[in-house]
Design a protein around this nucleic acid. Sequence first.
RNA 1: GUGCCAGUAGCUCAAUGGCAGAGCACCUGACUGUGGAUCAGGUGGUUGUGGGUUCGACCCCCAUCUGGCACCCCA
Length: 429
Amino acid sequence: MKTIVPSLKGTRDFYPEEMAARTWLYQKLRQVSKRFGYQEYEGPMLELVELYAAKSGEELVNEQSFVFPDRGGELIALRPELTLTLSRMVAQRQRQLVYPLRWWSFGPFWRYERPQKGRSREFFQWNVDLIGVDTPAADAELVAIIATFFKEVGLSPSLVGIGINDRQLITAELEALSIPDELRPAVFHLIDRREKLPPPDWAAYARDLGLSDTQFTRLQELLADGELWKKSDSLRSLFAALEAYGVSDYARYDPSIIRGLDYYTSTVFEAKELTGDIRRSILGGGRYDNLLEAVGGEPLPGTGFAMGDVVITLILKQYGCLPPDLGKTTAQVLVTTFDEASSAANIALAMELRQAGLDVLGYPRATPLSKQIKFADRVGVNYILILGPDEIKNGVVTLKDLRSGEQRSLPRSEAIAELRKLLARHKSS
RNA sequence: GUGCCAGUAGCUCAAUGGCAGAGCACCUGACUGUGGAUCAGGUGGUUGUGGGUUCGACCCCCAUCUGGCACCCCA
């Protein structure tokens, strides 16, 4: 074997089958986003590092981004997320945009992390944001979009769920426990770790942070309290709205959801697979009411979420939700090339079909029919047309259905209409 | 960035430190105007890469790359 220059760590090659899966996913996202009236947008893949500095979270920008100096010495980042780009784009036109603003996007992102199942260095992300309103109903709309998407791709509430919490609620509870403000980020992190660490380690971590025994006990009670949300006006409204949307079966209160990014101000949520072995979250999001100010705009509330393509694709594959014929050609017909003499007639026939709107493969060489039929079979075309000397003499074409194996000859002038009929029937069945 | 596990044909995997193999896939033929099934035959490898130990290395040692698991972080 010759040496092939390897692909870069953490990148993926999209062969036609994977590309078809990605496009399929994109179409689902697009459909759901549109259904809720969101508009598609896109930002640059390159941003100045300072856009992210201290707003996304130390680690994300300092350790987990691709950063390099450009020829002028400016520090450039391959975008690790979209929310700050979105905030900048909104801030730049803040006075002329119409609110509430609803935008969505699907594009590539990069994070310099150690690749693992469900995590690559280059990935695609669905971003959906609603800006200009700070109501629980706005958060509920986003959760409803997620639930609608799950339903649309065939993931039932028994397979995936959306956990919801409010950082303000937890903050208030921590204050009630006399946990000092400066300890809050650390305690948030502690809460975030609970399901990951064995209980003794978790307890040790809490002690190391300086929590007293009573504070620790109360914190555990908080996290076990499935009714805690009832103390929060906004969470009560949010869950009531989800009821109205008819998506309550996907959503549930989860006091341990905190999220890592620093810019979330109140509502936070996260979707996960409920039963399977994929532990990484499918998507995450929340409310970020200070972000516009942070990038130099006027204060403006916002809420949104992001879903990576890697985990969701694994899950869709696992549950057989992806269409089965993704690796197949999308061509509908193969026009064979019988021999050199009839080659021109075959090319002309193929072009006629294309002009009629059919997706048509030709065969760029005269070889035995057996080869061409085998090719059609393997590539996944269902119909083939044969136009050889006999057919040309009689003004007909031979149409073969590869699934049934049946074939018949029909007047050449009727070929298009007949194919359309067969394709329409096949599509509807 | 840390620790652990793995890497052999296109794929899934064998091979006590002693001749690199099987199944599937692929190609050819049985079948020169007809695919799938069956049968017969065939192609395919610098054992991830580079060093070392050894008479001899897929096997042991070191480094490195890639993937996976647990961290870290997060989509």
